[in-house]
């Protein structure tokens, strides 16, 4: 019988490329599927959210300005890092929520989804750009550009593949994001943050907050420096709140309802296009 004490991980928030505790010092408990205490998670406050949004804003121009090729490399690197931690993700999913088999399927689907969007980074722009016929001596063309800073409320089902399916297309398109993890599966989000941290994603591109969505959705929806909100959380009250408050600075809002994130149909470049703005340029040409 060994006397060794287990060294347990402190789950922290991931803001601006750093793992930090909540400035409020508040915590909440997360339970596994047998209702046993799984972990104490940071309960992010409004100020943590503000800091995360500031961090996301700070790096958005740099991230959006990188070559599509480079963003693709980095997303692929994320997939590599996840593959290395495959067993850990399976164990965590199994402990938190699902059967062994489903945990394996979900982890594999999550990794494959990253590869899918890594491939799209340098292709969607060509697909959705256009050269437009105009009745004047102009070369007229339209191209997609990133929306900016996106707030993401994660779904409560599909703790891993759901999360990846929301984050990947948003950052593939050159946006930065602040993720409000599912309340039930915050620990999976924490581990995903470690993967992001170790995979060449610049600090601040993805920020992960654990906590109560009820605390965080209202200040996210009213924040003037957030350009878009994406919610896949099944909570009509919060969705209403997002839609009502989005008008203040005309945020782009997308609500994904009841999507089965395990399916292959749940990945497509149209998810990237949900957070792109089309810019049209009129360039004079000689007559």
């Amino acid at each position: 019988m060994s006397n060794r004490l287990n060294v347990l991980k402190t789950c922290k928030l991931y803001i601006g490329g750093k793992f930090s505790r909540s400035e409020s010092e508040h915590y909440f408990q997360a339970f596994d599927k047998k209702q046993k205490l799984l972990a104490n998670l940071c309960r992010a406050s409004r100020k943590d959210l503000r800091n995360a949004i500031q961090a996301a804003r700070k790096v958005q121009a740099d991230w959006g300005g990188r070559t599509a090729y480079n963003r693709g490399q980095i997303l692929y690197r994320m997939a590599e890092m996840m593959e290395g931690r495959r067993d850990q993700f399976i164990a965590e999913l199994e402990c938190a929520a699902v059967s062994r088999r489903r945990a394996e399927n979900e982890t594999d689907a999550a990794i494959d989804r990253l590869v899918h969007y890594a491939g799209w980074t340098d292709k969607y722009s060509a697909l959705f750009s256009s050269v437009n016929p105009v009745a004047s001596p102009h070369f007229n063309f339209s191209i997609p550009e990133p929306t900016g800073v996106v707030g993401i409320a994660a779904p409560d089902d599909y703790p891993l593949v759901g999360l990846i399916s929301l984050i990947a297309p948003v950052i593939a398109g050159g946006n930065t994001c602040v993720v409000l993890s599912s309340e039930k599966y915050g620990s999976v989000a924490c581990t995903l943050a470690e993967v992001i941290h170790s995979s060449d994603v610049p600090g601040g591109v993805v920020n992960v907050l654990t906590g109560f969505r009820a605390d965080l959705v209202p200040p996210l929806a009213t924040h003037m420096d957030v350009n878009a909100v994406l919610s896949a959380a099944d909570d009509p009250e919060q969705k209403k709140n997002i839609q009502e408050n989005a008008h203040i600075n005309v945020k782009r809002v997308h609500l994904y309802d009841g999507t089965d994130w395990m399916k292959d149909e749940s990945q497509s470049p149209y998810y990237i296009m949900d957070f792109q703005e089309i810019k049209t340029t009129w360039h004079p040409v000689g007559t």
Binding site: I53, T222, H223, M224, D225, N249
Partner: peptide, 9 residues
């Protein structure tokens, strides 16, 4: 206003 602000405005 109670809303966090953006330098854009």
């Amino acid at each position: 206003t109670g809303h966090y602000q953006s330098p854009d405005y």
